[in-house]
Computed example of a mutant assay.
Amino acid sequence: MATTRNTTWQHVEHGFGPLYNSESQILFLGTMASPKSREAGFFYMHPQNRFWPLLQALYANPDDPTDTTGTTKETRKAFALRHHIAIWDPIESCDIQGASDSSIRNIVPSDLTGMVKHSNISIICPTGAKSNQIFHKYQAPIFEREHIHVDIVPLPSTSPAYASKTPQQIIDMCKERLGANGMTTNPAYTEHL
């Protein structure tokens, strides 16, 4: 392993598969599972990541106090599938320094086509600039070649490293972008943010 600025490069494999089923309608893409997520075997498990509070704000039924993401793999998986949400990352393996998206290199991309073909996914939302860049470099040409048509709606990163926006600003940006593409969301549910 080479080191740069006292940070070690590490080759990482994603370690767990996508979350979706045949009823999934919208796919949220990260980049590569963080160390905390790989350890837990599930998406966005770093306690400071704002992904699950964002999903709750966008999709939870405000009239149902039990419709929450919770904090466990099981409750979050159930929430996503109940709301027809799929989650995956465009990277199957790569070299990375810690959890820094900007350090990612030597990418082996994930296959997203099977998910889309075996579900109702019509919108793909890369979360963050790096996710969007990777999707367009690796997966978009395959989608075009295979005549797979979906709307691409880039969303802001939910990483704690993306601190220039408040949680409410991220929610508002996502609502605006998803609403403009016909993907309705529930009224904001922000008490846990």
Rank of each mutant, 00 (worst) to 15 (best):
M183A: 15
V153W: 01
N132F: 12
E13W: 04
S157W: 02
R76M: 15
Q139A: 09
H11K: 06
F135D: 00
P156M: 11
Q169K: 07
D95L: 04
L29W: 04
S122W: 05
K175H: 10
K117M: 15
L178I: 12
R82D: 06
E144W: 01
H83K: 02
S37P: 11
P18M: 07
P65T: 07
K137L: 14
Y162T: 01
D89T: 04
R50H: 15
T190V: 11
A161W: 10
N6S: 13
T127D: 01
Q139C: 08
E39V: 07
K130I: 02
S37I: 14
H83P: 08
F79V: 12
N21W: 03
N61V: 03
P53W: 09
I142L: 07
T31W: 00
H46K: 13
Q25S: 15
D89N: 14
P53F: 13
T185L: 06
L29Y: 02
S110P: 03
T8Q: 06
P47S: 08
N6G: 12
T8C: 02
G17T: 15
S164N: 14
N6M: 08
Q97S: 06
T7V: 08
P90E: 03
N21F: 05
T31D: 02
L155M: 10
D151H: 04
M1G: 12
I104Y: 01
K117Q: 14
G70K: 06
F28L: 11
L29S: 12
N106P: 01
F28S: 08
L19F: 08
S119M: 11
L54I: 12
R76N: 11
E92K: 09
I91P: 10
S157K: 05
A80Q: 03
M1V: 06
P53V: 13
T166G: 09
N49I: 07
H149S: 10
S122P: 00
H192C: 08
G41A: 05
K175R: 14
R105L: 01
S122A: 09
N132P: 00
V116N: 05
M1K: 04
I96N: 00
L27A: 09
I26Q: 11
T71M: 09
L29T: 03
T166S: 15
I85L: 09
N6A: 05
F79R: 08
L112I: 02
E92L: 13
N106R: 10
P47M: 03
L58R: 05
L178W: 15
A129K: 13
S159F: 04
T69F: 04
A60P: 10
I134K: 02
A33H: 00
F135V: 02
Y162C: 07
S157C: 14
T8A: 07
T3Q: 14
T31K: 00
R82F: 12
L27V: 05
P154K: 03
P62G: 03
M115H: 04
T4F: 11
L58M: 06
F16A: 06
G15V: 06
N49D: 15
E191R: 15
Q168Y: 13
C94Q: 06
L81S: 14
I152Y: 00
A99G: 02
P160H: 10
A188W: 07
A2R: 10
R76S: 08
S164Y: 06
E176Y: 09
P156T: 12
A188K: 13
K165Q: 14
G182K: 07
H11F: 12
E13I: 04
W9R: 02
